[in-house]
Design a protein around this nucleic acid. Sequence first.
DNA 1: CTTCCACCGGAAGTACCGGTAA
DNA 2: TTACCGGTACTTCCGGTGGAAG
Length: 405
Amino acid sequence: MESGKSQKDLFEDLFSKALQSRIFINRELLSPDYVPQTLPFREEQLAKLASILSVSLKNERPNNVFIYGLTGTGKTAAVKLVFKKLKEKADEIKANVVAVYVNTRQKDTEYRVLAEVLDSLGVKVPFTGLSVSELYNRLFKAVQNKGSITIVALDEIDYLVKKHGDDLLYRLLRMNSELQRGKITIVGITNDLKLIDSLDPRVKSSLGEEEIVFPPYDAEQLKKILEERARLAFREGALSPEVIPLCAALAAREHGDARKALDLLRTAGEIAERNNDEKVETRHVEMARNQLEHDTVEAIVSTLPLHSKLILLATLKIIEEKGKATTGEVYSKYLDLVKKLGIEYITSRRATDIISELDMLGILDARVTSRGRYGKTKTITLQTSKEAVLKALLKDELIGAVINE
DNA sequence: CTTCCACCGGAAGTACCGGTAA
DNA sequence: TTACCGGTACTTCCGGTGGAAG
């Protein structure tokens, strides 16, 4: 046992180390939630969005806006920044403007999106129990009573539309024709350019009143963005000169994703700090890349329902033997596992869906291939690190019992 | 050219859960 | 209390299909 004094010193040491980092000055600046005051290389898009939405200050309804751009191209940050400035101005001149940002990947049902919008209008609703049409009624009343120009940004709507169709968009847009006071404007944000074609033509024309495109950043631009943030986030001399170009290059390879670039840089810094290293080096970036991948896979896998985990485990075992798998092989392996555990099994129809879900999550790659006389099936390969998946699966005690043959 | 495998994947429905309204 | 709500996980049924084998 440690004596009281040395333990106290230990904590003292740890805490003061945390307080005076030798790497960071302000790590927050690299966080994915941080909204910078300026967005380099996005001046044009910011100006366009701001000018479209500015008419709300005169109590007029701005046009609906459709924003496209791949992940990490600054769409979300741009919308949040413009909203913030708009709200400030609206407060200043007492304009009746409400601007809500909703990420439809987090609020992934019609109900939850509406609840979020209502919340920002000051109406609290229970998180379940009401019908969706009741929420529409309440939203209508809320906008009508407040008479506000209500601007709703729906981020990642491709996600919502794929899952639940474009009903939400249609009904929100149609509400305007019945409102006597107050109006609703929608800012739709998507990274799927094909989305527009799958929309109801009425929604399409109404939502597409204005369009703003966010092109990917190139490696050079990513470098400048990182440099700008790093100047304030890191201590002087804490970054070796190759670090930023490497982060920029890695992220540029993934369609110019600035968020990825910032994640890499931040995580590399954190790793260097934990190891008590003087400087962030390229090897830290490599480790960061690994860790980020590991973390996302683990987070996804560990929250999967039991049968999804079992399907995944069965797939893993087949792939271990043969390098790739088919639906039939996976399903029969899965049946073996279930038998050993003595629990109920799901049908192969459901298994097909689970494999597709795992594909969409980016854990597996499952493509339908035809083997002629030998039928049509999904050819499945692993898309992530086997270790990360196994580690996450092992957390489940039931699976731990059956993981080794 | 046709056949036919081994699945694919849409549609509709069931069961359950955690919740509200009246 | 009863009736109903949405979300998730799953089932049942079944028509559909790319392309190697014949």
